[in-house]
Design a binder for these strands. Structure first.
Lengths: 144, 144
DNA sequence: GTAACTGCAAAATATTTGCATCCTT
DNA sequence: AAGGATGCAAATATTTTGCAGTTAC
C-alpha cells in the first residue's frame, strides 16, 4: 500500500466515520488539512488546493467539518478566522485540542505545536472551565 | 470630588495623553470600556451606550484606540472580534496584557481575569515568542 | 431512485473609503 | 482659523440563503 493510497483511505474513512458522503470537494479540502501542519484561513483553501471551489461550498464544507468535530477554529488576536485539524483529538468528534498554537507575525502562518501542552491555570472561585486555549505570537522557525 | 467627576477627569486624561481630541463619542465609548469589566464586541457599543453612534464612527474610534494602545483585541475561538481595555498595561500604549481571558459559553461575556497571569511555556527551538495569550472557555460566575 | 451535495444568483452583514460639514483646540 | 472628527452615501468584502441541477449511495 503506497503512502498516497493510505492517505486516500484515511480521508475516506474520516468522512464515512462522520456520516458524510464522500465528495470531491470534501476529499480535497480534508486532504489539504491533513497535509498542512498549520491552520488555514478560509481564503487559503481556494489558494492552496489550486482548485476553484465555489465559495459557498467552502463555507459549507468548513461548517460541516466543524459540526462533526473534524476541524475547529483557533483563536487569533488579529481577528482572522483560522481552522485546524489537529492530529489525534479532532478526528474523534470531540477536541481537547490541548496544545499551543503559534502565529507567526512575519509569514502569518499558524502552526500547531503538538508537543507543547497548555499549562493548567487556577481560576478564581465560581468559574467553571471547559476548554483552555493558548496562542503565542512571534517569529517562527522559518522566518528567523 | 465625586466619583463620576473623577472618572471624567480620567477619561479626558487618557484621551489627551494619547494626543486625541476629546470628543463626545470618544468619551462615551471610552467610558463604556472603563465601566465594563469585560470585553466588548463592536455591536455592544451601540447597544450598551444607548447612543445611536454612526457605525463608521464606532469603527474609526475603535481603530484609533487600538493604534494608541488604549484597547486591544482579544482572541476568541468563535471568531467574534472583541475589544478590551485592560487595567494597567493598556493605558500606557503598550500591552503586555498578561492575564487570562474567560469567555462564558452561556452568557457570551468575555471577562478579564486580571489576577490570573498567563503561565510561561517552553517553545521548541527556533520559535521566537513575542506575546502569549490564553483564553479559557466555560461557565462564568453569574451563569452557574 | 432518493437523499444529499454543489454551484449559481442574490440577499443579508460587515467593513472601508470619500467627502462635505461640524467641532475641538 | 485650522486641523481633525463626524456623519452620510456608497463602494467593498464577507457570509448566508434559496433553489435547480448533479452526484453519491
Amino acid at each position: 500500500m503506497t503512502a498516497s493510497r493510505m492517505n486516500e483511505t484515511q480521508i475516506d474513512h474520516i468522512l464515512k466515520h462522520n456520516q458524510l458522503s464522500v465528495t470531491d470537494s470534501r476529499k480535497k479540502i480534508l486532504e489539504l488539512f491533513l497535509s498542512s501542519n498549520g491552520a488555514l484561513a478560509h481564503g487559503d483553501i481556494e489558494k492552496k488546493t489550486g482548485e476553484k471551489f465555489d465559495r459557498v461550498t467552502v463555507y459549507r464544507t468548513l461548517q460541516v467539518f466543524m459540526e462533526k468535530g473534524i476541524i475547529h477554529t483557533i483563536p487569533t488576536a488579529d481577528n482572522s478566522v483560522r481552522y485546524a485539524l489537529c492530529k489525534d483529538d479532532c478526528t474523534e468528534g470531540h477536541h481537547h485540542d490541548n496544545h499551543v498554537h503559534f502565529v507567526c507575525s512575519s509569514c502569518g502562518n499558524t502552526i500547531c505545536l503538538e508537543d507543547v501542552t497548555v499549562p493548567d491555570v487556577k481560576l478564581p472561585k465560581g468559574f467553571q472551565p471547559e476548554e483552555f486555549q493558548m496562542v503565542v505570537t512571534g517569529v517562527c522557525r522559518e522566518c528567523q
